[in-house]
Write a protein that binds this DNA or RNA. Structure first.
Length: 294
DNA sequence: AGCCAGGCCCTCC
DNA sequence: GGAGGGCCTGGC
């Protein structure tokens, strides 16, 4: 099915910029319009950009049923031109926008997003992807589309039943205990992530960081990528480097802001779509590498 | 070999 | 309140 869409939409940077960990490139496809395979809300989806829009296939829900959800997931209703206008305050963001025009923040399943970013502590994207995929394969339910097989991301109950020991076997390391605890909390209904979409930024942050293994950085990722908090501003080592070198190194005395002051500064500086600015700066910085200062 | 990764938590001062 | 070390594991 084709979702007609002529506004900027770059699937490659959107799906491969470290927001989500389940997207894989299809093999032997036309290089101009590669298929991306992934799992979205209990559906196996393959998707690609075409001249006219976004084309996709899905199962077990058919394309007609999944179309609205996918538009939602891809945030096709975000008006990128006005967002760009809002965050384009300097040449650094401008360069990111020029390089990755059409990169969008995703609107993911909050549960999968939370557990995925809990797994990101002191890790890296290939390993996080492996952890998430392994959790699905071992504790989720099978999905198939056109002969390809993947698994749903496990529910809170499924992960709670799995337990720390089995999660450690999958290579989650010290994160396994946190995942088990949070899965138990969610399975018992002691936190409802979807209602946090309606909560204020501060309230959502407080609720999330009360969870074991969830600190300021992970909470901001979850809020940005799944809870509609586009002002969220995750500060990891890449963003910290980028801010310090690109924005703060020339401050009087070269005084560096401590981490606690960094986010308020960024949210003030970049405005209500600070999370979009974050994503463009992060993606550009990460692909440049830690040594690049230009 | 030893250090570091897209953090978090706990202990100390 | 904030600096510093420990934590699983894989990769260089």
């Amino acid at each position: 099915m084709l979702i007609p869409f002529t506004q900027p939409m770059d699937l490659e940077s959107t799906l491969e910029s470290g927001q989500a960990f389940r997207w894989r490139r299809g093999q032997s496809d036309s290089p101009d319009h590669p298929w991306f395979w992934g799992v979205v809300f209990d559906n196996l989806v393959k998707i690609r950009r075409t001249e006219d829009g976004v084309e996709f296939f899905s199962a077990p829900d058919g394309e007609v049923r999944l179309s609205a959800l996918l538009q939602d997931y891809l945030r096709l209703r975000d008006d990128l031109s006005s967002i760009y206008q809002s965050i384009d305050t300097d040449e650094r963001v401008r360069a990111g926008i020029d390089d990755y025009t059409g990169m969008r923040i995703l609107r993911q399943d909050p549960w999968e997003c939370l557990i995925s970013f809990m797994c990101s502590s002191a890790s890296n994207i290939p390993r996080i992807s492996k952890n998430v995929e392994d959790m699905g394969r071992n504790f989720g339910r099978p999905l198939s589309l056109e002969g390809q097989s993947r698994h749903t991301f496990p529910t809170a109950r499924e992960l709670a039943v799995a337990g720390e020991a089995r999660l450690r076997e999958l290579g989650l390391g010290f994160r396994a205990a946190y995942v088990e605890k949070v899965a138990e909390i969610a399975a018992e209904g002691r936190i409802d992530l979807f209602t946090l979409r309606e909560a204020s930024y501060d309230d959502a942050l407080a609720e999330l960081t009360a969870l074991p293994g969830v600190g300021d950085k992970v909470a901001n990722c979850v809020m940005l990528f799944s809870l509609d908090k586009l002002e969220a501003f995750p500060i990891d080592v890449w963003i910290k480097r980028a801010l310090e070198e690109w924005y703060l190194s020339e401050r009087p005395g070269g005084a560096k802001l401590v981490a606690r002051e960094l986010r308020p500064w960024a949210q003030q500086h970049f405005g209500p779509y600070a999370g979009y600015a974050n994503q463009y700066l992060f993606h550009k910085r990460r692909l440049q590498g830690k040594g690049a200062r230009a």
